[in-house]
Amino acid sequence: MSTSPAPLPIRLLAQWRTFAPSWMILAGLAVMPLLLSSPNFIRLLFVTLLWITTSVAWNLLGGFAGQISFGFAVFYGIGAYTTALSMNAGVNPFIAFLVSAITAAAASLLVGLPTFRLRGPYFAIATIGISEAVRVVMTNLSFTGGASGYRIVEHRAFRQLDHYYTALVLASIAVAFSVFISRTRFGLGLNAIRQDEDAAAGLGVNPYAYKLGAHALAAALTGMVGGVFSRYAAFIHPQGVFGFQTSVHILLMPVIGGIATIWGPVLGGVVFGIVEEQIIASFPEIHLFIYGSMLILIILVEPGGILGAFRKLLRRIHGRR
């Protein structure tokens, strides 16, 4: 125990066995579009990767730190509009994504400074209010086209694979971030805040600063996703990117997969990416009702999500450890 500790990246490399499955999945996703080059399939993968990223991002705050936010559409939308405005001003798209990350993180501080003085349900309710307020403002803002939306003009040929690999890199960064944070002092502090904020503060954790930090990281990632999406879609409107259903989607995925875990939110993103379009296509009138029912069902039956249910099953098979 007293040997000098190796730096974290080296220790992570040393644990390659743990991460071998992740590397294989990553490699699979990297070659998949080259083998199955149907544009619709690639689009589905692209969208799923974006959903995974927002899901993992939300989990940093909602899962690790236990602060349930219904307001992530704010960061998604701000990211989307920032990239759109920057690209139309001639900025390189990848620089624009970074600008989106910074803008969204800055916005997260504005949202977090007042709302993190609230706890539990009051925080959640406040985020709904802010999210709706921002949507209304954006609907009436004239220089972004208001409710009629905003068009992005990119002066180069559309190559779907560019978009796909951008999303793949972003999703990988998000997951790596999530793994990294869960193993650091920062992650331990967030974990303690989730379980008992007062007890954590009584041992030296600054809950306010930690929540703001997790919120900013989550917002930056979500903002980048918004940016990548807006570049792909080439057209965005407030009702879409700032819509309440966007917030609900972002929150629903980690809950489906398993909150406060590494792979739960990823799993939730995969499931959601696959079923989302089917649900909207089959039940356009009541798709939000379906999501609401899913949310209630999971919270009542298995708050641990798919991963929680799976672990219970494993424990039953192997007997109690």
């Binding site: 331990l188 502090g189 379980q195 041992l203 030296g204």
Partner: peptide, 17 residues
Amino acid sequence: FREMTVLENVKLASHFG
């Protein structure tokens, strides 16, 4: 912290103390 081990509980205090 009920989801942590005894050691993790104390380790948190070592970290943030």
